[in-house]
């Protein structure tokens, strides 16, 4: 299926304002990986008023804990992890100018509202397609918390990484819209 937007990181307000739930995007440039343990550490630093190990304003965070890179490859499998676990941390990062999050699964009301307020988007990659997603990763290096292993923060260089817009700056939600079309029973 066709890609509607080619995005190059870092992203501006204008970049994300043009995106609508359901649009297909291809992301190129630098994205940072962070999942549960890394988010907890970032929040602790923010709470203590300390500097963060990665830039946040204009950046993209990919919720992923890749498998180890076999010899001759830059990364192992690298598909998205479930995003709701990062919901408690996301509004604080959005306030600091985070422009996009890549993951899979539903976000909380608070996160969706924070995306509208601070102009940011949530993108879904295909969960469980780790081998396919890794094709878009052309460079990877650990930039913080190496001791966390798969949960370390990595700087990934990506080339046309595919994703779909789930939540846009208007508060639309692709999961709700998509499921509504095919639901034959009462909602959850």
């Amino acid at each position: 299926m066709d890609v509607e937007h080619h995005l190059t990181t870092p992203l501006s307000d204008k970049d994300v304002e043009s995106l609508r739930a359901g649009d297909r995007v291809a992301i190129s440039g630098i994205v940072y990986t962070a999942r549960d343990a890394a988010h907890r550490r970032l929040m602790e630093l923010m709470g203590a008023g300390k500097e963060l190990p990665i830039p946040i304003a204009g950046q993209v965070i990919y919720y992923v804990g890749p498998s180890p890179a076999p010899p001759g490859r830059v990364i192992g499998a690298a598909g998205p992890t479930t995003s709701y676990r990062m919901d408690p941390y996301a509004p604080g990062l959005l306030e600091r100018g985070l422009k996009a999050m890549i993951g899979k699964g539903k976000r909380s009301r608070e996160v969706i509202e924070a995306m509208v307020r601070y102009k940011a988007v949530y993108l879904a990659a295909i969960g469980g397609a780790g081998a396919l997603m890794a094709k878009a990763v052309i460079g990877a290096r650990v930039v913080a918390y190496e001791e966390l292993g798969p949960e370390a923060i990595r700087e990934l260089k990506v080339d046309k990484m595919p994703a779909v817009v789930v939540n846009d700056v208007l508060g639309n939600d692709l999961y709700e819209e998509g499921q509504e079309k095919y639901r034959l029973t009462e909602g959850p």
Partner: peptide
């Protein structure tokens, strides 16, 4: 019949 579909995008 829930309509969740592949990846929860409906189907």
């Amino acid at each position: 019949r829930t309509g969740v579909g592949p990846q929860g995008l409906g189907g």
